[in-house]
Simulated scan of single mutants.
Amino acid sequence: MNRIVNTLALFALIGLSGCASMKVTDTSLLDGRREMGRADMKLYPVRIVAIDGNYTVDRDTVRAEPGQRTLRLLAAPVAGFTQPVEKDVPFTIEPCKRYYLAARREAPLRQDFQLVVQQVEDRLDCVKS
């Protein structure tokens, strides 16, 4: 039993040491969760469904390569509607950034929205190439 535990511990140590030597490339992060604490009632969460036609599986934060991209976004339906709104939006992604995105609706019952960048942060764990 001790031999099995020691072997598993050794594999875990090797795996963790490999993670420490990995460097994050110049990718950026896109986050569509609405930042709480903001008083703008016209902002709503947005989900990044696809980037350049490549569908994502992440629900909250999506990793993206820098450059001019087309984001497919999904915003929840407003009151009285059942279908969410899906829209393609051109977006320029800079390397090593974290973007907080939101949907801005001009009226509470209007389905259409505009993409808004709430905040941009530099990623400290990123290495520009």
Rank of each mutant, 00 (worst) to 15 (best):
V89T: 13
L16G: 00
P77A: 03
T27L: 05
Q118F: 00
V78E: 01
Q83N: 14
R72T: 15
P66V: 13
S28C: 01
S129N: 07
E94H: 14
A39G: 05
Q119R: 13
F81A: 15
R123Q: 13
K97Y: 05
Y44I: 04
V89R: 06
V85L: 02
Q83D: 14
G80Q: 08
C19G: 01
D40V: 08
R47K: 15
D40T: 01
R72D: 04
Q83I: 11
T70K: 13
D88S: 09
R105D: 06
D112L: 06
P77L: 10
E106Q: 08
D60V: 13
D31N: 12
S17I: 03
R59Y: 06
P84L: 07
Q114C: 02
T56W: 01
K128Q: 11
L10E: 12
T92M: 12
T7N: 09
T56S: 08
S17L: 12
Q118Y: 00
A75Y: 01
E121Q: 06
L16N: 03
R34I: 15
L16C: 09
A75F: 02
V49S: 00
R59W: 03
I14E: 03
A79I: 08
K23M: 07
Q114W: 00
L124Y: 02
K97L: 09
D26F: 07
G53S: 01
G80E: 05
M22G: 10
M36L: 10
T27I: 09
L8Q: 11
G18V: 07
L16V: 03
A9W: 02
R104A: 15
G15T: 05
F113N: 10
T27K: 08
E106L: 09
V78Q: 02
M41F: 04
G18Q: 07
D88N: 11
V116K: 04
C19S: 07
E106A: 01
P77R: 08
I48D: 04
P95E: 04
A64Y: 03
S17R: 08
G18I: 06
R38K: 06
A76L: 09
D60H: 07
A75G: 05
A64F: 03
P90L: 06
T27D: 12
C96N: 11
L30E: 10
L30D: 02
N54F: 03
G37D: 02
S21L: 13
F91R: 09
L13I: 13
T61R: 12
V57L: 12
P66R: 03
P90V: 05
P90S: 09
L16S: 03
Y100R: 14
Q118C: 00
A75N: 05
V46K: 02
V46R: 07
L29Q: 06
E106N: 11
A107V: 04
A76I: 04
N2S: 06
R110E: 10
A9E: 07
I51V: 15
V49I: 14
A102R: 05
T70E: 14
D112F: 00
M1S: 05
L13G: 12
R69C: 09
V62N: 13
R59G: 07
R59I: 08
Y99G: 14
E86I: 10
N2P: 01
L115Q: 02
E35R: 06
Q111M: 15
C126R: 10
F81P: 04
L71D: 13
G32M: 06
